[in-house]
Amino acid sequence: MKRSVIYNSLIFISILIFIARGLSMFYSEIIMSGSYSMRIDRDFYRYDNKILMLGDSHSMTGLNSEIIGDAFNFSSGGANYMKTYYKLKYILNDKPRRFKVLIIPFDLHSFASNRSDVLMDSYYWKKYVNYWELGLRKKNLPAYLTEYLRGNYFPYAGEFGNVYLYFKDGQQNVGKEKYRKVIKGYMIDDENYSKKDKMKLARTRTEEHFKGTKSVDEDLVFYFNKIVSLASGHGIKIILIKFPITDEYYSIASEMMQVDKYNAQINSLVEGKPDMFLWDYQNFFFDKDYLFSDSDHLNTAGATEFSNIIKDRLKSEGILDF
């Protein structure tokens, strides 16, 4: 092989890597820095509170950190127990923190198998998730390593939508969600479910959560137990919340899964553990559809009412006495 061929190939690849790194930094540090995930992330490391809320959009839109007091809502949309575990692990390894109470969702869809393979938003999760470990656990190393590469080197791959929005509207509009105000991680949502086509919305949501899935996925149970071990190892109390849902969502979900069997199965994960509390508010707002933004997410009014309930219960049960 000619020397010039090797020389040219090396220069070509070097320029390629240089452009790729530049684009990667531009996407992660500039385009996506306005996304709610990144804003919350920056906020989190500025505070140090007694109560930490983790989990998915149910906790993100359902618990107002300011009402609960001395709390930070560090939930992320679509975060399953795997991601929650890695986030918790990262936080605990990062530096000593004050928090001794962890609140996470324990909902009908929390263990559903279609949540067990959430490979997305790697530009954000690359910091937390150990893709190698997860790939081995899931017996799908190529997919998880691809996600690792994507998060670290090609976060813009396939994300033309965000690039377009950035150049069109600036940072105000990027990310999966449109620009929304967040208060210490709690995301404000002013939609009103009662004014929407409720049955259609509930069916769409339940199908997203339950259609063709196994109600209890072994990998999610495995990572849930890891969260429990990790938290108890650090003397952290865990409060599992079954978040309020609408009766439409509940009734359609009941057609798609055996709710009683599911509850019995997941409740057994909690039994006999003194530092774990299971608070069930699933049907608490069945007759108050105006407190929801869709069939299974609380809106601002709902989050206010619900956060006050949680705050009072935390006090009355003496959980914050430490």
């Binding site: 684009l23 997919a143 994507r150 090609f154 813009y156 791959a157 396939g158 994300e159 033309f160 690039v163």
Partner: peptide, 8 residues
């Protein structure tokens, strides 16, 4: 990379 769809 930017305009492609990467969902296998």
């Amino acid at each position: 990379l930017i305009f492609g769809v990467f969902t296998s």
